[in-house]
Write a protein that binds this DNA or RNA. Structure first.
Lengths: 312, 312
DNA sequence: GGTGTGCAGGCAACCGTTTGCATCGGGAGG
DNA sequence: CCTCCCGATGCAAACGGTTGCCTGCACACC
């Protein structure tokens, strides 16, 4: 059994309240007493039980972070940044993977609710109503989504989409298409609206989803594609190759996210880079009240090897 | 304020203990009473507070999962599998990222300790002594590492390494090298020992680490390389390309892990596939006592495009 | 010398839930 | 009719901390 505050009190000959204060309000206890307490504490290997503390203070010093799919390379940098930033405020971050499943997502949030002081929801697939209802129990910050009264961190994907389309047009492409993401995706709606080109989809937001769409792209006769994200773009390149279609010679492909695989792959993806680290930090700031209001972060357009002149 | 057990008791005209039992020991309470309690409970939106419950029962119904680096595509499938498997036992999994930093890792574990019933440590960078000491406070399962008395889930990377070396030799390569991982890595030691070829490293277990090693590989004049993992292999391919060295024409490269980017990349990586999902499930089983003892899971060797005949 | 002030630390209630034990009423068995 | 037993529920003490309030004390001031 781990040592409790009572063990420490006994060992150092003071009342439990003095031990408690030694840890959570050091200025209220005499220096010599406190050092005696501390000595006893680490002789016993005592560490305050955060869960028990939460019961009285109402603060758990934990934050929850729910992502749509942890296997999507888009999220890890965001998670890392959020975690690092939270740690500076003595907070810890619990990550949970909703697996692109709204029901799982809701259940996860419910479980998290009582054990954290706030939740960051990344690219949630839940409906607005459900999110608002859940937000009654614990502070929320939503990333890549706009929900009524909730603080949110957005990325300016619309501008990225416009730049991508302009880039393709400048290269002589006239038949363009947007390879859409899941129907519940805010990012997908934003990009689609800004791009103003025909849509193929919805598609799974995975490499498989992109590969599956290759035939439809060929059938539509388009030569320039803006994909929902890099994963879809990579899958599409793959699928097109299987069909004997070359990128960028026959078809130009633009991704979104600037994930690592996209930077390593041949051809390296032309893409809209998302400010994932900044988003992670900002989300935590919003949660801890260090900032507020909806925040929109800038994106960048990066030209690499997956786009080229339109074929004649 | 969220509803507590007392609110429900008041609303349904019974004692709190009856409400408690309605949830955690239904057979002890009369059917009609229980349905009245349940009705009141969901009218109020009551959900038991898991943290408070943990205080008396000692069971949190949470599991911790600490990974060396969440951005490494090796981990997400393992995480997903562990999470899905845990959920079937009403357990939830909290994921934490140690960021390849032993100090952060230890701190994370300490924080997690009181809030979970067990911890899965994936590819820990901590020393054996520290791990053993921490294991006194909470059940541990270690993945990809052997630690004294602790249950562990291992992957048969030694066999994979032997197959890889045999494959390269069969292709006519005589000058081989192993591109090692971090010094604390069990996997790295296993593979090195089994491969029995000169080592270049240690290297960062990232694409950058692989790219950085490209010059050393060229300088050593080797034509066949077994890399610590796919990320390193991908980085190496990248770094070699920058030096004008082609893969597989000039140098053959074998990775380990079979991560998605390796499957998509050109050239597609020849690699040792790791049973990550099985490892995630098995780790949870060990933690929950549904299985025991060290478990070694089989690996598979997959030939793709990054290996070819040795140049003459 | 009496009074005021402020610091240290003890006391006990409380956070939300579980659980061993006591109580109570009713039905079965003698 | 009296026990005995059992099912259903209430009671209260935990679990490991925090915190408002009170007390005791030393010191300084008038």
């Amino acid at each position: 059994m781990a040592a409790t505050i009572r063990d420490v009190a006994r060992a150092s000959g003071v009342h439990v309240s003095t031990v408690s204060r030694s840890f959570s309000a050091p200025h209220l206890v005499n220096d010599t007493t406190r050092s005696r307490v501390m000595a006893a504490a680490d002789a016993l290997g005592y560490r305050p039980n955060r869960a028990a503390r939460a019961l009285t203070t109402g603060r758990t010093l934990n934050l929850g972070l729910v992502v749509a799919d942890i296997a999507n390379p888009f999220f890890p940098p965001l998670i890392k940044a959020a975690q690092a930033h939270a740690r500076s405020g003595d907070y810890h971050v619990f990550v949970a993977d909703a697996d692109e499943d709204p029901r799982a997502e809701e259940e996860l949030i419910r479980t998290l609710t009582k054990q954290v002081d706030g939740v960051v929801l990344c690219s949630p697939r839940l409906s607005n109503e459900v999110i608002v209802r859940l937000a009654a129990d614990v502070p929320f910050v939503v990333v890549n989504r706009e929900v009524d009264g909730l603080p949110s961190v957005l990325m300016d994907v619309a501008r990225g989409a416009r730049l991508a389309v302009a880039h393709l047009r400048a290269l002589g492409h006239t038949r363009l298409a947007y390879l859409g993401g899941p129907s519940g995706s805010w990012t997908s709606r934003q990009a689609r609206a800004a791009a103003g080109i025909p849509v193929i989809g919805p598609n799974q937001p995975t490499a498989q989803g992109g590969a599956d769409a290759a035939e439809a792209v060929v059938a539509a006769g388009v030569t320039g594609v803006l994909a929902y994200n890099d994963l879809v773009a990579l899958g599409l390149v793959e699928g097109l190759a299987a069909l004997g279609v070359r990128v960028p010679e026959d078809v130009s492909v633009v991704g979104v996210d600037d994930i690592l695989p996209g930077r390593l792959n041949r051809p390296k993806l032309t893409t809209v880079a998302m400010p994932t680290e900044a988003a992670g930090r900002t989300a935590v700031d919003l949660l801890l009240g260090a900032a507020d209001g909806p925040v929109t972060l800038p994106t960048a357009f990066i030209v690499r090897e997956s786009t080229g002149e339109a074929p004649r």
